[in-house]
């Protein structure tokens, strides 16, 4: 757990134990609130029940994966088992700050403006 800016934001690294365990999938509205919070996703209180229902359905559906014996199976990250290429560390792009900042919501003197973070 990490605290930031006067303790307003705390990043949960782990969902509480009373959140749902796999095997008996049913997510309650508190869990939905916590997930939305982790994802920094504004979700209307009125929609929580709908999300709780549909996520429960989806995770119940996903449960069938547990019936498969995957001991010793290497997880597959790339379909062709390719690995990341390395390239020479040379400059390949020009600075286009003005062009990129033209589409930003708020900028000033070449900086992106956000609400005050540290007081």
């Amino acid at each position: 757990m990490r605290l930031q800016s006067r303790g307003q934001i705390c990043y949960l690294s782990r969902l509480p134990e009373n959140a749902v365990e796999t095997g008996n999938m049913s997510l309650d509205q508190d869990t939905i609130r916590r997930i939305a919070r982790l994802a920094r996703l504004g979700v209307d209180e009125a929609e929580n029940a709908t999300y709780a229902r549909s996520l429960s359905d989806i995770f119940a559906f996903v449960e069938q994966l547990n019936a498969v014996d995957t001991r010793g199976i290497e997880p597959m990250a790339h379909p062709l088992d390719a690995i990341q290429r390395l390239r020479p560390d040379v400059v390949s792009e020009e600075n286009q700050r003005d062009k990129f900042q033209k589409i930003a919501p708020r900028v000033e003197s070449g900086l992106y403006l956000v609400p005050r973070v540290i007081e």
Partner: peptide, 21 residues
């Protein structure tokens, strides 16, 4: 939200790793 939940600590192995296997 599905993804955030499946990737959250304690669930990563049960969901993401399992699915990749």
């Amino acid at each position: 939200m599905i993804g955030t939940y499946a990737l959250s600590a304690g669930y990563y192995d049960a969901y993401y790793l399992k699915a990749q296997q």
